[in-house]
């Protein structure tokens, strides 16, 4: 029994080292802005830069908009496919996987050709409409994660008989969707939502080529012009991601389970 145990620990140690060493290196480097001593000055510089807060706020708003739009698109679609069009499932799955195969740069070039200021629908003509275009692009990028999460969530409930039960009680489609289906895939929607958040926060290609003041281009700008601050920023980005994961864990717990009366 000793040997396999040792092997398992070795594999674990290698795994931890693979992830931890670069991170520790980054943190260590970010603390060395002053010669000969550790300090948090790099973090102070980042956090006191109004551009950091502006771009972060912009990206966070874009992420929330993406989550709302994506959820309203994906949940009814996944529901309808499960209920009435199961034959279309493989095709829809394939379509939702496309963003993983086609790079964002292709998507954004397509957008720029279709919606430039001299086109039939000049979406890039004004900042607000460009934002709409960007969020639409983010919804596409988030599709693989959002659709899969929601579809898995729907697998765990009996969509058909819940729908039929609600129908026989007199409920209309919209009531069924918002009162029965949504609450029961809430956990799945949330985990998809936080993945979406993490994707949108760090997204560079779309924001940069549409020239929007997002966090991704800001990261790139700082990375290109400063020495220590990029490491601090990288660590902050990691922390944000972890916070997202933590939130998933927190919200993933059923509210029903928390209110158990024993």
């Amino acid at each position: 029994m000793k040997r396999p145990r040792f092997g398992a620990w070795l594999a674990f140690a290698v795994g931890v080292a693979y992830f931890a060493i670069p991170l520790i290196g980054t943190v260590e480097f970010s603390l060395r802005i002053r010669r000969g001593t550790y300090s948090l000055d790099a973090y102070g510089n980042v956090l006191s830069d109004p551009a950091f807060w502006n771009t972060f706020g912009f990206s966070a708003s874009a992420a929330v908009a993406t989550i709302v739009a994506g959820t309203l698109l994906v949940v009814p679609t996944a529901y309808w496919i499960r209920l009435r069009l199961p034959g279309l499932r493989p095709y829809v799955e394939f379509i939702t996987l496309m963003p993983l195969i086609i790079p964002a740069i292709v998507l954004v070039f397509g957008y720029l050709r279709l919606y430039n200021s001299s086109s039939w629908l000049p979406m890039t003509g004004a900042p607000w409409s460009t934002d709409v275009l960007m969020v639409a692009g983010y919804v596409v990028l988030a599709l693989p994660y959002l659709y899969r999460a929601v579809d898995t969530g729907m697998r765990s409930i009996d969509v058909r008989s819940l729908t039929e039960a609600a129908e026989s009680l007199g409920a209309a489609r919209s009531t069924i969707l918002f009162r029965v289906i949504f609450p029961n895939v809430r956990t799945a929607v949330l985990s998809g939502a936080f993945l979406t958040f993490a994707i949108v926060i760090g997204e560079f290609t779309l924001a940069s080529l549409l020239d929007r003041p997002a966090f991704g281009p800001y990261l790139q700008l700082v990375g290109a012009n400063r020495a220590y601050e990029p490491s601090a920023l990288a660590f902050i980005a990691f922390a944000v991601t972890w916070a997202c994961m933590g939130l998933i864990q927190l919200f993933a717990r059923d509210p029903a389970a928390r209110s158990v009366k024993v």
Partner: peptide, 15 residues
């Protein structure tokens, strides 16, 4: 249709 239905798998709303 104003009919009540009971299903084999209960079909209670889990939420």
């Amino acid at each position: 249709r104003d009919v009540g239905m009971v299903f084999q798998n209960y079909a209670l709303f889990p939420n």
